[in-house]
Write a protein that binds this DNA or RNA. Structure first.
Length: 306
DNA sequence: TAAAATACCTGCAGGC
DNA sequence: TGCCTGCAGGTATTTT
């Protein structure tokens, strides 16, 4: 399940693999993959031809490739060479993508056999490696939107993530305290803090010794700051490990799995001993998904509302 | 207005 | 072997 560390690994792969290249052809093989592109698959395919990718950016779990149309680069490149510097003359369009639960963005040689769930294929004018969007469960998708150099309009509501240098710790603590909900619901709300999904929410709450149903309005400021520190720690460690490939649905642009699954302390460890106190990790159904906690380290709040 | 519930979607595991 | 059910869960939409 791609969360912040996995998406950042993919972004870095795109930076290496497709930035500076010009799109020659796009093939949409499953219309659902471009359902958020309001003018349809045919327009999606046509609009990208000739566009040069100038940057690979990320906000939370969203990725986008900044685009420059022919003539938009302030220093047009020599044919056959990369345009340099890659600086569009104005804020151009963006190819916005979300991996959903099972999406993969692969940069592979054209001779690579089609993946079973290949949804979109991008080929480039240099004839080199293709970009492929592969997605088993089709929760992910791509669209062409405005705002490539800044922040695409459709994701203006997504908050910064805790690894963003401009993330505002004080605003997060204040925002958490102002809510009337449970801790995990708040951590999963991308308008408050982005990049956290089910796995890293459970890991951070375990590390902080807090139960997912604890009311956000009962948290002391020091506890909120401690939780934020644990969120940062787990995201950083996961990023260094190349992400978590819990069910093999997440891989990098080179098709490599992450290694953080080995380091998980709570998520997916039902019945296993807690790494702190040896109590058995328990699994609860919560928000139509699973939550994993240590019953000793993370006691359920009395009279918990969430 | 905020919070909670629901829909979307496919592959897989397990039970019968 | 084949069918059915439950589960995985991020986001947008709908309901409360």
């Amino acid at each position: 399940m791609p969360e912040l560390p996995e998406v950042e690994v993919v972004r870095r792969g795109l930076e290496r693999g497709v930035v500076g290249r010009t799109i020659a052809k796009v093939s949409v093989l499953h219309p659902r993959a471009v359902r958020r592109h309001v003018t349809g698959a045919a327009d999606f395919e046509a609009a990208l031809i000739g566009q040069t990718i100038t940057a690979a950016r990320r906000r939370g779990k969203y990725l986008w490739l900044a685009l420059a149309a022919p003539g938009d680069l302030d220093t047009p490149g020599v044919p056959g060479e990369l345009p340099a510097p890659l600086r569009p003359a104005e804020d151009g369009d963006a190819l916005l993508g979300h991996l959903g639960m099972s999406g993969q963005l692969l940069v592979v040689p054209p001779s690579t056999p089609d993946q079973t769930h290949l949804r979109i294929r991008f080929t480039f004018t240099d004839g080199g490696r293709e970009l492929r969007f592969v997605d088993q469960r089709t929760f992910g998708g791509m669209a062409i939107v405005a705002g490539g150099a800044s922040l695409p309009d459709p994701i203006a509501h997504i908050a910064r993530d805790p690894l963003d240098p401009l993330f505002d710790d004080d605003a997060f603590v204040a925002g958490l305290g102002a809510r009337r909900t449970g801790l995990k619901r708040a951590l999963l709300d991308q308008r408050l803090v982005s990049g956290i999904g089910n796995i890293y929410a459970d890991e951070a709450l375990w590390a902080a010794g807090l139960h997912y149903a604890r009311g956000t309005d009962t948290l002391r400021r020091s506890e909120a700051r401690g939780l934020l520190a644990e969120v940062r720690a787990v995201l950083t460690a996961a990023l260094e490990a190349g992400g978590t490939s819990f069910d093999q649905l997440y891989v990098s642009t080179e098709g490599v799995s992450g290694l953080f699954e080995r380091e998980l302390a709570a998520y997916g460890r039902e019945g296993a001993p807690c790494r702190r106190c040896a109590s058995q990790i328990r699994r609860d159904a919560f928000m139509n998904r699973s939550s994993f906690t240590c019953p000793t380290c993370q006691p359920r709040p009395r009279g918990g509302r969430w």
